[in-house]
Design a protein around this nucleic acid. Sequence first.
DNA 1: AAGATTGATGGACACGTGACCATTTATGCC
DNA 2: GGCATAAATGGTCACGTGTCCATCAATCTT
Lengths: 339, 339
Amino acid sequence: MPNILDVAKRAGVSPTTAKRAIQEPHLLRPATLERVRQAIEELGYEPDQLAGSLRRGRTRTIGLMVGNIIEPFFAALIRTVAHEVRAQGYALMVADSEYDSGIELENLKMFSGQRVSGLILRSAFGTPNLEYLKQMQTRGTYILQIDHFYPDSPFGYVMLNAQDCVFEGVRYLYELGHRRIASLGAYHPVLTPDERSRVFPLALQAVGLAPDPTYQRPIPRSEEAAYHLTLELLRLKEPPTALFSLTGTEAAGAFRALRELGLRIPEDVSLLTFDNYSWTSLVTPPLDVIEQPVEAMGQAAAQVVLQAVEEGPPLEPVRMLFPGRLIKRGSCAPPRRPI
Amino acid sequence: MPNILDVAKRAGVSPTTAKRAIQEPHLLRPATLERVRQAIEELGYEPDQLAGSLRRGRTRTIGLMVGNIIEPFFAALIRTVAHEVRAQGYALMVADSEYDSGIELENLKMFSGQRVSGLILRSAFGTPNLEYLKQMQTRGTYILQIDHFYPDSPFGYVMLNAQDCVFEGVRYLYELGHRRIASLGAYHPVLTPDERSRVFPLALQAVGLAPDPTYQRPIPRSEEAAYHLTLELLRLKEPPTALFSLTGTEAAGAFRALRELGLRIPEDVSLLTFDNYSWTSLVTPPLDVIEQPVEAMGQAAAQVVLQAVEEGPPLEPVRMLFPGRLIKRGSCAPPRRPI
DNA sequence: AAGATTGATGGACACGTGACCATTTATGCC
DNA sequence: GGCATAAATGGTCACGTGTCCATCAATCTT
């Protein structure tokens, strides 16, 4: 693999001059520049980012860790971030925590060993790796949370305005006449300490409903778990008349369960979900969804991190909230027997 | 950021000894080992992979470039590969070519600059970057193609046995009585030089059918394009009675178009598609699919690349074919008016 | 007990680059 | 034409590690 010394030798200049042909070409005489450029061309020289990073004390690498790559929300996020990051000459390292803080820690160590300059993190559930993250930050890695943040987070975050969305969703169902509304999955300080499930009972109270404790069952954020929970909820003596799925992944499980139970949407049960996934408009009936501006969030996150890495962290910690958008397609309707 | 010298100093040993505590602990006296370990613990030392890679002449980094991260096939692939790779202490760099060979080249250059040791590539369409890839290989990057390979590829590949799958799919539709079968998208040497569309006419011939030229229209592999193509095909004077979608992404477009046209599946049109995406079993009717063993392929690819990187490339280029599985759910049935 | 062998530990250097400072060459000015 | 100034170019070293070889201590052999 040719290096800058080979280029310099072939062009008959010093290594310093050769390097300038790449980084500060305006400092070179056109003739010299041309000679170096030709040498680079002939040798197929490409700067070694490793050596450069080592010397510079800073890599051109960003880490992105999500909960589950297969969820379209995260897939879209990765894609957007990968795009933004590459446009600035950075590389993107990707990891998947499976929402498990143990796996998360292992991946953090890997990122740390690779000396990523910035980290975009969708934190896992379980015991937070706060200490480790703080240490990474102390050592110069800029850390930005996305989609979820620790209470009193010392890091910036880019988030959906979950509170507004949940309130709007609940109000929507309430105004259709629903009084027995269940969310798929309830708040749990360790298992699922996410904002959406935390806020859901408050949203019920805001419209004057008392949260039904029999509906409040924490589950992992998976299609499978949502499937089973839906079966359970609708076999209760007083089943909910409307389901509010807090993630698109869970909506698939709920939909599957409702079909198996022979329940019609929206005649028997209304279904509302977060995430405007492609399939939600293909099923019968198409689902009412709360769409997240994924691309905008991904772009924002990437730009914040890149700027922090290049020009130093912002004085004020970044706190960005993005609005969701309720799209009505017909999976929510007044309950058959309003109470 | 503490380095191995700091560790050595704190433990009162030489840097060499300190390093051995990490890499060859059996060479150290237990007492020494313990002292070094404690120093590592206290300082929170983590080896710098950059410096190590530079000295070693080989990184612990694998590059993965796919056509479109958002397609669940690729998302699953990334997830599996990320998992395998991390288990061996490697980091994964991910890029998305958008199936565009220009973007692919840019990403390849980034990977090359980062000195990835191995590369798993779902090559883009358009002018292949063969020269550049060969150069990367010459310089020590092990390259493995996945899901698609160049004719006479100088690289190993991990693939679905597309030929068998297409033949089986066509035979299935034929035996149901279909004589007017269209694939979504036809072979095109530059736009879509993929094996599935190349083989499709041969599969028709194998059951004694003559490929209908009016059906053969190359399209990009997108939901949007498939949507429009489906509209066009079914407005022909002699529309196909069965559609064979060559990717799961395109199936979504076809499904949408059929619904808009008010055509019932399978009564009016049969629909068969590659990829057992989650939504295909949620729609009405659930779709007949040809499932790819994505996890197995991802694992195989990762293991091949990691082994090649650690122990040198295999003598024989890797050529792995994985079988698909036809799952019948009810979206294919005999045509109403068999010809 | 002296040499031979093994077990532990240490020292020097190179990987390719970027930062910094030094030096040479061209240009402007009177 | 000589000097000041700007424009171009060059030289040296450190980033943190892994490799290679050297050294020193401990144990074994006869």
